[in-house]
Every structure is written in C-alpha cells, then in structure tokens.
Computed example of a mutant assay.
Amino acid sequence: RQAVVMRDGMITASRGLGGDLMSTEEDELLYMIQSRAGGNVSYVQRFLTPEYKTKEIIYHCSVRPGAGGHTTLGRATMPTSSVGVSCQAAGEASFENSYYVAGDGTIVSGRQWMGETLGYLDTQLLRY
C-alpha cells in the first residue's frame, strides 16, 4: 500500500511512505518545465500531518532552463535539456529540484522534493 503518483514525470502525491504528499497544484510549474521556459510561478504542496490534518504550503519557484545533453534510460541514450527549479515558502524549507526533459516535453528523470519527512526522491522513466 505504498505509492508515488506522477503526472508527466512530476511527483504529485504519495501514499504509505510517511509524511504523505496528499496533492499538489502543479499546472503552471509543470508547463514551464515541459516547455523549458524560465520564469517565476507558484507551486502548492499539501501534506498529511501526524494529527491527520492537511498542511498546505505555497511555494514561490524560480525556473531556470539549462544546457542540453543526453540522459541514459537503460540501454538507450536520448537528448534532453536540464531544467532547475528553486522554491521557497515563508517559514518552510526551501528546495532545489532538477529535471531532464526530452524534446517533446516528457520529464525523463529528475530529483524532486517530497517534503520534510522524505526529502528528495530521484525518478527515472523506465520506458519511452
């Protein structure tokens, strides 16, 4: 009964891992990552507390497109572009996510913040 839910390569929820990420509002951030555009957006994460309350954190994120390169997926190597995301919220831990995005906007791998309890999770697409 453990799960990590993803949307187009971005983590949007988790269950059964502790400090569950209940939901996110990721539309703007996901769009900027997929289009490899720079700028600033809001990003919301909601967590389940030990008291079974939902804690909502509104982050202000800066998206920075990076250089092109190649990402290895199993035996295949594909061209990707890197995208860095820095997020901050008042009174909360800031974080730095990194993504590798294929030409069609698919996030093929990344390092993503899952909250104070879990920290970062590395993700990689298994099939493309």
Results as ranks from 00 to 15, higher is better:
64 R>E: 15
51 E>K: 10
124 Q>K: 11
17 L>Y: 13
82 S>K: 12
42 S>P: 03
1 R>Y: 08
57 I>V: 15
104 D>K: 02
4 V>Y: 04
56 E>W: 03
125 L>C: 00
58 I>H: 12
95 F>G: 02
9 G>E: 00
13 A>M: 02
24 T>I: 07
37 A>D: 06
18 G>K: 10
38 G>Q: 04
105 G>R: 02
96 E>P: 03
71 T>K: 04
102 A>G: 09
58 I>P: 03
123 T>F: 00
50 P>L: 11
100 Y>I: 04
86 S>Y: 05
36 R>Q: 11
96 E>D: 15
4 V>G: 10
6 M>E: 08
86 S>P: 03
87 C>K: 05
11 I>R: 05
17 L>P: 09
44 V>F: 00
64 R>V: 14
107 I>K: 01
28 E>G: 13
7 R>A: 11
101 V>Y: 03
11 I>S: 05
35 S>L: 07
119 G>C: 12
22 M>T: 10
23 S>K: 15
14 S>N: 14
28 E>I: 04
58 I>N: 12
9 G>M: 00
104 D>C: 03
92 E>I: 05
29 L>E: 10
1 R>W: 08
48 L>C: 07
29 L>S: 13
103 G>T: 08
48 L>Q: 13
128 Y>I: 14
118 L>D: 14
28 E>H: 11
60 H>C: 06
26 E>A: 14
121 L>H: 02
113 W>I: 06
113 W>Y: 14
68 G>C: 00
41 V>L: 06
117 T>F: 12
105 G>D: 03
95 F>A: 08
93 A>M: 10
27 D>R: 08
24 T>V: 14
34 Q>V: 02
36 R>F: 04
59 Y>P: 11
33 I>K: 01
18 G>M: 09
42 S>V: 07
32 M>Y: 11
33 I>A: 05
67 A>F: 02
63 V>C: 10
49 T>A: 08
86 S>W: 01
96 E>R: 05
71 T>E: 08
35 S>V: 07
58 I>T: 15
78 M>I: 15
97 N>T: 09
94 S>W: 01
1 R>C: 03
107 I>P: 00
23 S>L: 09
126 L>R: 14
20 D>G: 13
104 D>W: 00
